[in-house]
Write a protein that binds this DNA or RNA. Structure first.
Length: 649
RNA sequence: GCUGCUGUAGCUCAGUGGUAGAGCACUCCCUUGGUAAGGGAGAGGCCGACAGUUCAAUCCUGUCCAGCAGCACCA
């Protein structure tokens, strides 16, 4: 048997016979390591301790202290333990897949009866039994034919499909066992079920999920679990979820009296004065930014004839998502068919097309706060983040292909500055590349994808590639932000589109005097005001930056003899550009402080007779316990400065 | 759209086969109180909508609508 040389993280090397397993290596190093070892990284790949090593390699042995590896194993093994528990309780249940995900795992089952919340408790109890049994985990390599025969015999038709889907390139088909239960799995795994902490996991919810993620397939039942290295970590996570619930924009929208939604207008927002204040403040800010960024602003119709949607291709490809408006005109043979615009782009091309454009006009950056309506699937609606009526901070940059890269780089900087002003530092870029069904030559896709990637790099940003996720006509950049519980939302975007100018016959006159086709860049920074404000609320937990806060200051009287002075202070603040309100209700100051704190008013100025006599106010800031007395003029100057939007400061 | 869960006062929720309750909010009264809920009284509901079962339905059944979670979708 040949000798191999293993290199360890500390740089030492040792020689072993080929085929040695990490478990044996750990045992050779020390008995304590052998006991604590859970897995190993061999040449950068995470394997379990039974994985034979056939050639020279770098090897790192992991223990429960190595977070990423330990968590992966715990969650992975829990997925199997849960599947076994479910099949022990309900033997007719068919198993499918169960991967590790952020914070935990899920497993999809096929079972007639739905799982109930009570069932989850029963499953958890059974899982703890399995963990306490400390069943050894072992893996076996099976032939493809044996695996298929086995699963056909046991009626596990999903597993048959999975085995068949494994590419026939000689890679082993591994079976994983603990106790009498078995699952198809490539590993890695812990040594025995008892290594999983029995008090650091929790089953969270059941939901439907399509087999293989395809809505044409049957729907399975997915059980989600979370798991950590110990009980404290689990507790920390559950506390985080509770805290996140308090940041939910739907809850804060009510507490801060920003908006409401109701059954008669699903997916549409009734903005209350406070919420609309945020909206208009943000819009004013965006308009100033766009002016500076070299955009021209336009406005286009809401209800547009079917003819234009046919020409743009939306009628064919997007009709299911459009609100169709039929108008029965007098004496008309047929009803006139229109649609509410789901996007602004076709209308912007109409503006571009009116009047001959020269290459000197390019790049032409055409912006619109464009109100759009889309008939989104009912299950997709979510608070004000995913709605059927919304306004995009939309713009289309008409340019030559050679200008794409520079325009993209310019846009990323534009977006980054705005996100920073609005308090966002964590956001990511995703580059979606050519899908299978697409138009245009590969050479053109090569050029444009490279242009987008280069622009990101030039602006100093990394990006994640989403293979095949681009639109059929071109690649796109997505700028995503996360909500209170970590769900990602696409806000900004930039999409390259040579198709629509073609369909709607947009042209410019080039230097050569001939007609040329421009490229369109669809781009948005906020995405939609609605979604962005939702994210903004959750990001700041309702405590918006002062300049965006709908109610910036409440001046509250402590005794009614101070009421006149309260109104006087409010007048001065308003004159200085601060959104101030008086609270002279017959209530104690405690009550007023509590109410306005819940309402997330950033500054409360309390006024009693002492303040009246001295022409001062007592200032209390949201989230701070202590108060401070200041002269009225100083406070007005200070708050007025804070109320100034960052771009005007 | 799919699976599951939910729908009772403005909000958060309890409850029952014989047409309803709490706390907070609201209105009025008392109270003028110094930084996260002072006290009292009052008003407020087609129990999501429509059918069915029943002597009788907010409660049981069905359909629909809306919301929540996840999946799918997201030009």
């Amino acid at each position: 048997m040949s000798q191999i040389s293993l290199t360890f993280p500390d740089g030492n090397t040792r020689d072993y016979a080929a085929g040695i397993t990490p478990a044996e290596v750990a045992a050779d190093i020390s008995t304590s390591l052998a006991k604590k070892a859970i897995s190993a990284t061999v040449n950068g790949r995470h394997h379990d301790l039974q994985w034979p090593i056939d050639a020279d390699a770098s090897v790192a042995i992991h223990t429960m202290k190595d977070a990423p590896q330990a968590l992966e194993l715990i969650r992975h093994d829990l997925a199997h333990i849960m599947a076994r528990a479910v099949q022990e309780i309900w033997p007719a249940t068919k198993v499918t897949i169960g991967p590790v995900i952020e914070n935990g795992w899920y497993y999809d089952f096929d079972r007639e009866e739905p799982f109930t919340p009570e069932d989850l408790g029963q499953i958890e109890a059974k899982m703890k039994e399995i963990i306490n049994a400390r069943d050894a985990v072992r893996t076996e390599v099976w032939s493809r034919a044996d695996a298929i025969a086995h699963y056909e015999k046991t009626g596990e038709r999903y597993k048959v499909e999975l085995v068949n889907a494994i590419p026939d390139d000689g890679q082993p088909i591994r079976m994983y066992w603990h106790g009498d239960w078995q699952d198809l799995c490539r590993g890695p795994h812990l040594q025995h079920t008892g290594q999983v902490p029995a008090d650091a996991f929790k089953l969270m919810k059941v939901a439907g999920a399509y087999w293989r993620g395809d809505s044409k397939n049957p729907m399975l039942q997915r059980i989600y679990g979370v798991a950590f290295q110990n009980r404290d970590e689990l507790k920390k996570y559950l506390t985080f979820l509770e805290e996140a619930e308090k940041r939910d924009h739907r809850r804060l929208g009510r507490e801060m009296d920003l908006f409401h939604m109701q059954e008669e207008a699903p997916g549409q927002i009734f903005w209350h004065p406070n919420g609309w204040r945020i909206y208009t403040t943000l819009q004013d800010y965006m308009r100033r930014q766009q002016d500076r960024g070299g955009y021209v602003e336009v406005n286009t119709p809401q209800v547009v004839s079917r003819k234009l949607w046919e020409a743009s291709g939306h009628w064919e490809n997007y009709q299911d998502n459009m609100f169709i408006v039929e108008v029965d005109e007098d004496h008309a043979r047929e009803k006139t068919v229109n649609a509410l615009k789901p996007m602004n782009c076709p209308c912007h091309v109409q503006v571009f097309n009116s009047g001959l454009k020269s290459y000197r006009d390019l790049p032409l950056r055409m912006a619109e706060f464009g109100s759009c309506n889309r008939y989104e699937p009912s299950g997709a609606l979510h608070g004000i983040m995913r709605v059927r009526g919304f306004t995009q901070d939309d713009a289309h940059i008409f340019c030559m292909e050679s200008q794409i890269e520079a325009e993209t780089a310019k846009f990323i900087e534009f977006l980054a500055a705005i996100y920073a002003d609005l308090g966002f530092n964590d956001w990511t870029i995703k580059l979606s590349t050519r899908p299978e069904k697409r138009i245009g030559s590969d050479e053109s896709w090569d050029r444009v994808e490279a242009a987008l990637g280069n622009a990101c790099k030039a602006a100093g940003y990394d990006f994640e590639v989403q293979e095949g996720e681009g639109a059929f006509y071109g690649p796109k950049l997505e700028f995503t932000l996360t909500d209170a519980i970590g769900r990602e939302w696409q806000c900004g975007t930039l999409q390259v589109d040579p198709n629509l100018p073609e369909r709607l016959d947009a042209v410019y006159i080039g230097e050569d005097g001939a007609k040329h086709r421009p490229v369109m860049l669809h781009r948005a920074v906020l995405g939609s005001f609605e979604r962005f404000i939702g994210i903004l609320i959750e990001e700041h937990a309702g405590k918006l930056p002062f300049w965006l806060a709908p109610r910036q200051v409440v001046v509250a009287s402590i005794v009614s003899d101070a009421d006149d002075y309260v109104h006087d202070v409010v007048r001065h603040l308003r004159a200085a550009g601060v959104r101030a309100e008086a609270d002279t209700r017959n209530e104690k100051i405690n009550y007023k402080v509590r109410e306005h704190s819940v309402g997330k008013v950033p500054v409360i100025l309390a006024v009693g007779m002492k303040e009246v006599d001295e022409r001062t106010v007592t200032i209390r800031r949201l989230g701070e316990k202590d108060t401070r007395v200041s002269g009225l003029d100083d406070v007005i100057a200070q708050l007025s400065a804070e109320a100034t939007p960052p771009d005007l400061a």
